[in-house]
C-alpha cells in the first residue's frame, strides 16, 4: 500500500452492458484520482454514468476494462468475495433510500458491518453507540427505523457507514429524499466527518446546493468526465 499516493486512481475505466446492437457504454474511459481527505461531489444528467462510477468505486461492480487502484492495489480484477472484503474493511455506504434493516433497532443496524468484521458483542455495541453519538442519535439507539424521521434514518445510515472506520464513504444521493433543512443538516454532518475524522467522501448528487458542500466537483456526461475542478467551500 502507498499511503502517500491517491486513495483512488481510475485509469480509462469502461463499463459496458449488453452486447452487439444492444450494447450500452455506461462508462467510456473514465480517469481520475481521489486523494485522502477530499470531499468529491459527482454530478451529471441522468444516464451520465455517475451511479455506475459509484458502483465501481464501491466494488459492487467490476469495470469491463481499465485500471482501478485502491490504495495503490489493483482491484478491477478481484472476485466477489475479495470485493466483499474490501468493502468490509475500507468502505462505507450511504444510500438515497437509507437502506436500514426494518424491524431492527438503530443500534443493531449500526452494528451490522462490525458483525462481519467478526467483532465481539460488547465492543460492537460500544462502537455502534459511539457512532450513533457522533450523528447525534445516541438517545434513539433502541428505536426501530420506522419510528424515526427520514433525516434521523439517514443519520443512522451515516453512523453505520462510519462505524467500521472506513477510508472512504460513498454517498449516493444522500439527501435525495429529504427537505432542504434536513438536507443541510446531513451535509453539515458529512462535512464534519470529512474535516474532523479525515474520512474521504465521494458523493453523487443532482442538487447544486449539496454539491457545493464538497471540495471538488466532477461533472459527467455520456459516461465521460466533462469537467473536474476544485470548488470554494460554502462554509
Amino acid at each position: 500500500m502507498d499511503s502517500n499516493g491517491p486513495i483512488v486512481r481510475l485509469t480509462d475505466i469502461t463499463r459496458v452492458y449488453g452486447k452487439g446492437e444492444a450494447e450500452l457504454r455506461a462508462l467510456d474511459g473514465v480517469s481520475f484520482d481521489i486523494h485522502r481527505g477530499e470531499f468529491v461531489s459527482i454530478m451529471g444528467p441522468s444516464g451520465s454514468g455517475k451511479s455506475t462510477t459509484m458502483n465501481v468505486l464501491g466494488c459492487l461492480d467490476s469495470p469491463t476494462s481499465g485500471q482501478y487502484l485502491f490504495n495503490g492495489v489493483e482491484v478491477a480484477g478481484l472476485d466477489r468475495d475479495q470485493r466483499a472484503l474490501l468493502r468490509r474493511h475500507y468502505l462505507g455506504f450511504i444510500f438515497q433510500g437509507y437502506n436500514l434493516l426494518p424491524r431492527t433497532t438503530a443500534l443493531q443496524n449500526v452494528e451490522l458491518p462490525l458483525i462481519y468484521k467478526g467483532m465481539g458483542r460488547d465492543e460492537r455495541e460500544a462502537r455502534a453507540l459511539a457512532a450513533l453519538d457522533k450523528v447525534g442519535l445516541a438517545a434513539r439507539a433502541h428505536h426501530d427505523p420506522s419510528a424515526l424521521s427520514g433525516g434521523q434514518q439517514q443519520r443512522v445510515a451515516i453512523a453505520r457507514a462510519l462505524v467500521g472506520d472506513p477510508e472512504v464513504i460513498l454517498a449516493d444521493e444522500p439527501t435525495g429524499n429529504l427537505d432542504t433543512k434536513r438536507s443541510v443538516e446531513i451535509m453539515e454532518l458529512m462535512v464534519e466527518l470529512n474535516r474532523a475524522e479525515g474520512i474521504t467522501i465521494v458523493m453523487v448528487t443532482h442538487e447544486d446546493d449539496m454539491a457545493a458542500f464538497g471540495s471538488r466537483l466532477i461533472w459527467m456526461v455520456d459516461g465521460k468526465v466533462e469537467s473536474d475542478k476544485a470548488i470554494e467551500r460554502a462554509a
Binding site: 468493502r87 455506504f93 437502506n99 462481519y116
Partner: peptide, 16 residues
C-alpha cells in the same frame, strides 16, 4: 432481497 443487498454492501461474503 434488499436486506441481502445491504448485508453484501457492508461486507458480507456470499458464503456468509
Amino acid at each position: 432481497t434488499r436486506e441481502i443487498g445491504i448485508r453484501m454492501a457492508v461486507g458480507a461474503q456470499a458464503s456468509q
